[in-house]
Design a protein around this nucleic acid. Structure first.
Lengths: 334, 334
DNA sequence: CTGTTAGCGCTTTCAC
DNA sequence: GTGAAAGCGCTAACAG
């Protein structure tokens, strides 16, 4: 414990340079030397000092994962996938959380603690604005985004327009025509953000089916159960004729279902509800939903980042597809 | 970007030693020098190199969080609390995941990547056995456990015996006498593990109330909805006379409720069910449960670890208390 | 193939 | 108070 490269060199009877080469598996070392070095290192329980190595090479072997919340479904699932993949590739992962508050236009993203500390950065589920992108890029290392496409940057994102299409088309195919949509809050419906893209998918599907994507059918909501509940109430007040609702997230759908029940409306008997994500186990809430795979997105992000760190070039956005998971909350209209 | 301490020294017209002292707020620096240094550093956008600093001081400013799953409720909530607290204390947090497989006796905890890299370790929700403790301690840095008490080591743990008492006493007070208990799998009921302690709480409460803690009333289950479902079915087969069930976790309780409904039994009309954790929002499942606060436990762990890193001594286990959160799944027996 | 020798950027005695 | 200089442990030319 605490032995240095000099100890190993002395014990193996070679120079430190040879130890360094042997340990890193470089080719220009004789088998005999290599064997001696490996044995000596083993006996001494030697491990290189990451600090010294980083100081000498300029590479730290660490990547930062920047994310808003660990205990929200999407970011934590992406984190899981990305962290494990990076760990298995030999990277040490370092997490950095930022406060992402509703309605607050800019997040206080302080990358100071990451400076000179990481070889790359994975930004998870954070819609960066211009100045924040500049700040992250000022670290001078490769950056990959997961969960938000942002054209010039390498990113992994689910195809949210497609998700909106899938969900809405499912309801249309069942025979619904008056299909409401509960989307995100007003500051979350930019076309580049998930909620905005899902809204666009709803609109396209309605138009393609010859239905009217009446703005009256769209309600805004926070991404949580309470928000979905309140939005559904509003929607019912304005359009009591809806027979189906496409909620932009499962938690919104859960709240909507609750509101419908409070109003004495059965799901799916009176109103069908479909969500997005696959957040809840079917045993808990048998929701019909369009599932996405956040773990996969995390792994893809990790792969892209690793490639960029080793000098490869990675092009724009890689799109991931969602797919319909049937549940018991949608049916033909009554 | 990329400026070193020498650049700052040159620009400020002082030696590197003075820059180092000034930047770290040491007292033996004249106000004038300090001002010049601070200005120069600011202008150059200078940040110390963590690697160089670590190499020179032996301290890295990083702590490792070791945990099994990010997307399970408890560990991810502890992670959230601990990470934020450590970050605000100026530590960089590094996460290290280990595979914790059901039934597998030992987890392959490889601390190699952490060696010489961290100033301390927080182990979250991982029941370490002897050899694993040795391995973690071989890192030569302070260690704090969260979620499992392990006497010689500093740890934060919820008082699970008390939780078992609270839950069972709630049912007893409602008038139930035949109270079943669904605990963890057979390899999870050691007294030092959460499930084992909660089981002990049930037993004590039953005895104190003059009821028989008949082993027939205890069923084993995996900590998930499916496990709770199957265990409840078994329990009903063996003891159709139960009027109340204390489930060792909310997910087990959710499965149990589902099983009861399948058998045509109403909750709480025919059978009362109480869980532990506070995992589900009440809007999703209005479960009566004994809540614990994992975020708090994470923050406490972070505080203890920080204290130990700065040389303080921290004694054994700090106990955290759970509390009853009333829901709509318990009532007086029919 | 292998050893020597500069650094990498910072902290820390030890003198002044 | 301040500076000079010796490391911290490793890598990367550069000779041989």
């Amino acid at each position: 414990m605490g032995s240095t490269i000099d100890d190993v060199a002395a014990r193996a009877g070679v120079s430190t340079a040879t130890v360094s080469r042997a340990l890193r598996g470089m080719s220009n070392v004789s088998d005999q030397s290599r064997r001696k070095v490996l044995a000596a290192a083993e006996e001494l329980g030697y491990v290189v000092s990451p600090s010294a190595q980083a100081l000498a090479t300029g590479r730290t072997g660490m990547v930062a994962l920047i994310l808003p919340d660990f205990d929200e479904w999407y970011p934590s699932a992406v984190l899981e996938g990305a962290q494990r993949r990076l760990q298995s590739k030999g990277f040490t992962t370092l997490v950095h959380s930022v406060d992402y508050l509703r309605g607050k236009p800019h997040l206080d993203l302080d990358v100071g603690p990451l400076r000179r500390r990481v070889d790359g950065v994975l930004v998870i589920s954070l819609p960066l604005v211009g100045s924040e992108i500049v700040s992250v890029q000022s670290l001078g290392v490769p950056v990959v985004l997961v969960g938000n496409a942002n054209p010039p940057l390498a990113s992994i994102s689910v195809d949210d327009v497609e998700i909106g299409l899938i969900a809405t088309q499912h309801l249309l195919e069942l025979g619904h025509t008056v299909i409401g949509h509960i989307t995100g809050a007003l500051d979350e419906v930019a076309p580049s953000m998930p909620a905005g893209a899902r809204l666009e998918g709803w609109r396209q599907a309605m138009l393609e089916a010859g239905q009217d994507p009446d703005p009256d059918l769209v309600e805004h909501s926070y991404f949580d159960i309470g928000g979905g509940h309140d939005a559904m109430m509003e929607l019912l007040n304005r359009r009591p004729d809806v027979t189906a609702v496409f909620a932009a997230a499962d938690c919104i759908a859960a709240g909507a279902i609750r509101a419908l029940e409070e109003r004495g409306l059965g799901v799916p008997g009176d109103v069908s509800v479909i969500g997005v994500d696959g957040e809840y186990p079917a045993e808990l809430l048998p929701l019909t939903t369009v599932v996405q795979d956040p773990g996969l997105q995390g792994r893809m992000g990790a792969d892209s980042l690793a490639r960029m760190i080793s000098g490869g070039a990675v092009s724009g956005t890689q799109w991931v597809h969602g797919s319909l998971r049937p549940g018991h909350t949608t049916s033909v209209p009554r």
